Simulated assay, not measured.
Amino acid sequence: MAYPRIYLAIDNCFACKRWTRPKEWCELIAQLGIGYVEASADTELDPLFMGPEYLVSWVEEVQRAQAATGVRVANLYSGHGTYTTLGLTHTDPRVRRRMLDHWFKPMVAAAAQLGAGLIFFAHAFVHTALQNAVLYREAIDVLEQGLIEVNQYAVAIGCENISIKQMYSPHQYPEGVKKFI
């Protein structure tokens, strides 16, 4: 019987606003004897805040830090910034488009360049949708279309692992779905 290989990893949220350069947090993680990290957008890599040129440089810095320390970024993680918006279920399609084009696609591209996955949570439902089964179903459809686009983009550029972080509140699907439909 073959057993799965299990790897110890750490989320680098501890480095937020303290050790923001990939070299810094990779060195700290290596000193702990941990070889894998989930890199949070909170550690100065959020594409909406930082912009595309910075994200390109950030990926290059991570690649150098990985080579120097042996620490590997296993996943990129959406961080707390995406919790502050409805994101992919925003009531305005322009905001959804911005999230897709200026947050998701750059993060997927960065993950692909690092050979990493992307774990995210970037959607929630407004109260009116939670109180009306028809509106709720429409919001789920909007979300699913956004997720399909993210997935198709990821497949097209070679990012193999995309995951939605499970949340624990009814307004943050998929938790509590059966309660509202």
Results as ranks from 00 to 15, higher is better:
Ile162Ser: 01
Tyr77Ala: 10
Gly158Phe: 02
Tyr36Ile: 00
Asp92Ser: 08
Glu38Met: 10
His171Leu: 09
Arg5Met: 12
Gln172Ser: 10
Thr43Met: 01
Ala110Val: 00
Glu149Asn: 11
Arg64Cys: 14
Gln31Tyr: 10
Ala68Lys: 07
Cys159Asn: 06
Phe120Gly: 00
Ile119Glu: 14
Leu48Tyr: 10
Ala109Phe: 06
Leu100Ser: 09
Leu130Glu: 02
Thr69Gln: 03
Met50Asp: 01
Tyr36Arg: 07
Leu135Gln: 02
Thr82Phe: 04
Leu114Thr: 03
Tyr83Arg: 13
Thr91His: 14
Glu27Ala: 13
Ala116Lys: 05
Leu114His: 05
Leu135Ser: 04
Pro106Val: 04
Tyr168Cys: 08
Tyr7Lys: 15
Val108Gly: 01
Gly176Ser: 07
Leu86Gly: 07
Trp19Phe: 15
Arg94Cys: 08
Gln31Ser: 12
Ala39Pro: 08
Pro22His: 02
Leu130Tyr: 03
Val150Phe: 00
Ile164Ser: 10
Glu53Ser: 10
Gly70Ser: 04
Glu44Ala: 15
Phe14Arg: 00
Glu160Asp: 12
Ala124Glu: 01
Arg96Met: 06
Tyr77Trp: 15
Ala30Ile: 00
Gly33Ile: 00
Leu147Pro: 04
Tyr153Gln: 03
His80Arg: 15
Asn151Ile: 14
Arg94Asp: 14
Thr85Ala: 13
Trp25Pro: 14
Lys23Phe: 07
Gly117Pro: 09
Phe49His: 09
Gln66Ala: 13
Ile10Cys: 12
Arg18Asp: 13
Phe120Val: 05
Gln166Tyr: 13
Ala110Asp: 02
Gln66Asn: 09
Phe125Arg: 09
Arg64Leu: 11
Asn75Ile: 11
Ile119Tyr: 11
Asn151Thr: 15
Pro47Tyr: 06
Leu147Gly: 01
Glu60Asn: 13
Met50Lys: 10
Cys26Ser: 10
Glu38Ser: 05
Leu100Val: 07
Pro47Phe: 04
Gly51Met: 00
Arg64Ser: 11
Val155Trp: 08
Val177Trp: 11
Ala124Ser: 09
Thr84His: 14
Leu48Phe: 14
Trp103Ala: 06
Ile164Val: 15
Lys17Glu: 11
Glu175Asn: 09
Gly115Phe: 11
Ala154Met: 02
Gly87Tyr: 01
Leu143Met: 05
Leu88Val: 01
Gly51Pro: 03
Trp25Cys: 10
Met50Ile: 03
Glu138Arg: 02
Tyr54Glu: 01
Met167Ile: 11
Pro52Glu: 07
Leu100His: 05
Asp42Gln: 08
Gly81Glu: 06
Asp46Gln: 12
Gly79Tyr: 05
Leu86His: 14
Leu114Phe: 11
Ala15Trp: 02
Asn12Met: 00
Ala41Ser: 06
Ile6Leu: 14
Ser57Cys: 08
Gly115Gln: 00
Val95Ser: 07
His171Gln: 10
Thr20Asn: 14
Cys26Thr: 06
Ile34Ser: 10
Ala110Phe: 04
Glu27Ser: 14
Gln131Phe: 14
Met50Asn: 09
Ile181Gln: 11
Tyr77His: 10
Ala9Trp: 01
Asn132Glu: 05
Cys159Phe: 03
Glu60Met: 04
Met107Ser: 02
Ala112Glu: 03
Cys16Tyr: 07
